[in-house]
Amino acid sequence: MLFIPVSLWNLIKVVLLCINALAVLNEERFLRRVGFGYRPEVVAQASVKAQIINLLHAVRTLMRIPLIALNITTIALSLLAG
């Protein structure tokens, strides 16, 4: 059996990569084609799909600057730690 140690640092990197993946989704090219484009009339509903659309929109708008800082910090710490 293969044993892979999971540390807090690895979990932080996984979460950061997942947030990055959500942030780079293009609304015009991808999200609208699959029905997850941001539209105010859909977002006003209380469905699961509306909550996912709200999450995607919030990550792309509010997390842009913090993600840049977190990515730079993570890359620098990974380079220093080896």
Rank of each mutant, 00 (worst) to 15 (best):
L2A: 03
L2Q: 11
F3S: 10
I4S: 08
I4M: 15
I4G: 05
V6K: 14
V6N: 10
W9A: 01
W9F: 05
W9I: 09
W9N: 00
W9D: 01
N10F: 11
L11D: 00
I12A: 00
I12R: 00
I12V: 00
K13G: 06
V14R: 10
V15P: 09
V15W: 12
L16G: 03
L16P: 00
L16C: 05
L17T: 11
C18L: 15
A21Y: 13
A21D: 12
L22M: 14
L22A: 09
A23D: 08
A23K: 11
A23R: 13
V24A: 04
V24I: 14
L25G: 02
L25I: 12
L25M: 10
L25N: 03
L25Q: 07
N26A: 07
N26P: 07
E27G: 04
E27S: 11
E28Q: 08
E28R: 09
R29V: 05
R29C: 03
R29D: 02
F30H: 06
F30T: 09
F30N: 00
F30W: 13
L31T: 02
L31E: 02
L31Q: 03
R32M: 06
R32H: 06
R32T: 06
R32D: 06
R33S: 05
R33Q: 08
V34E: 05
G35R: 01
G35F: 02
F36R: 03
Y38P: 01
Y38V: 02
R39L: 04
R39A: 00
P40V: 09
P40H: 08
E41F: 07
E41K: 10
E41W: 11
V42H: 01
V43L: 07
A44D: 04
A44H: 05
A46P: 13
S47P: 01
S47M: 07
S47G: 08
V48M: 10
K49R: 11
A50M: 01
Q51W: 13
I52V: 12
L55K: 02
L56Q: 03
L56N: 03
H57L: 09
A58N: 13
V59H: 00
V59E: 01
R60Q: 15
T61E: 06
T61S: 09
T61W: 12
M63V: 12
R64C: 07
I65G: 06
P66V: 03
P66N: 05
L67K: 04
L67G: 01
L67Q: 09
L67I: 12
I68A: 07
I68W: 09
I68H: 06
A69G: 14
L70W: 11
N71R: 13
N71H: 11
I72L: 15
T73L: 15
I75A: 12
A76K: 14
L77Y: 07
L77R: 13
S78G: 15
S78T: 15
S78F: 14
S78E: 14
L79I: 14
L79S: 02
L79M: 11
L80C: 02
L80T: 08
A81S: 13
G82D: 08
G82T: 09
G82W: 13
